[in-house]
Design a protein around this nucleic acid. Structure first.
Length: 267
DNA sequence: TGCCAGGAAGCCG
DNA sequence: CGGCTTCATGGC
């Protein structure tokens, strides 16, 4: 299955810190587990990606997962033609990034795990959780269902090296299974209301609530501020960045910032 | 060894 | 409210 899109670069997406189960196979080839399925993605050229799935599965799952009906090009153009020099370069550099529509529960748990960890370490923890509580398929494990994690004990999770986050995970999963939190409903309301509700979960503060809103509930207005974005806001904007200028797509702007700043600091 | 990582909670003033 | 500490773990 071949996809043509000017703003779909799986290498950039895999390295954008929003998904933790998209892993490099070789330079232009990635494996991805999501929605109980496994696919491989190959970046053929700048605007062409090959996915190892049927056309039917593509329309059923992956077209929506990669948010391919949304026009990222107009946002990139708007930023590259704008008068913000940093965003101009950031959007240019990360033009192939998209905000994925990932499974809300997976994102809830993943970003609880993410706190005070680096990305490789987060991936490692999530993989261990999947191996222990997910369903074993041909060569991979699915992300566990809420019931599985809700029934886990703190001692079991301790063995997975999640640190103090173990009880956060169990309680979050229980909040889902007992209906205290309804992620589908939070997808329909405003991002402010969703974030506020999510912060009632122990271990979910402002940053993680924004990440869940953005990556799990697809509230693209959400603007998570982690250590990297904080660096951008301080070093580039002297803490005077006006997020309201980007209403309706601030989360996408945030993603370009994150990806570009990490690149600048790496090299 | 000390410091940092897509932080949050508890406590203090 | 803003600032400080602690939390568990791995990598450099």
């Amino acid at each position: 299955m071949i996809i043509k899109n000017k703003n779909l670069n799986i290498i950039q997406i895999a390295d954008s810190g929003q998904c933790f189960r998209m892993n490099r196979i070789d330079e232009k080839k990635y494996g991805l587990v999501a929605y109980d399925n496994y696919i491989e993605l190959y970046q053929i050229d700048r605007e062409t990606v090959e996915i190892t799935c049927s056309e039917e599965e593509y329309h059923q799952i992956w077209k929506e997962y990669f948010d391919l009906d949304y026009d990222y090009n107009s946002i990139v153009l708007h930023l590259t033609n704008g008068n913000d020099a940093f965003l101009k370069k950031a959007a240019e550099y990360g033009e192939g990034i998209r905000i994925l529509r990932q499974e809300p529960f997976e994102i809830l748990i993943s970003f609880i795990i993410s706190q005070n960890k680096n990305i490789p370490s987060i991936k490692c923890c999530i993989e261990r959780v999947c191996e222990k509580y997910g369903e074993g398929k041909a060569g991979y494990f699915t992300f566990p269902k809420p019931e599985k994690l809700a029934a886990a004990t703190k001692e079991d999770l301790r063995k997975l090296k999640l640190g103090y986050r173990d009880e956060y995970i169990i309680k979050a999963a229980q909040a889902i299974t007992n209906g205290e939190i309804n992620l589908a409903n939070l997808m329909k309301c405003s991002y402010e209301d969703a974030a506020k509700e999510l912060k009632n979960i122990r271990g979910v503060g402002d940053k993680v609530a924004n990440c869940i809103s953005l990556y799990g509930l697809h509230h693209i207005d959400a603007f998570p501020v982690d250590v990297w974005i904080a660096k951008v806001l301080k070093e580039i904007y002297d803490n005077r960045f006006d997020v309201d200028m980007y209403k309706g797509y601030a989360g996408i702007v945030q993603q370009y910032m994150f990806y570009y700043m990490r690149y600048l600091k790496k090299v």
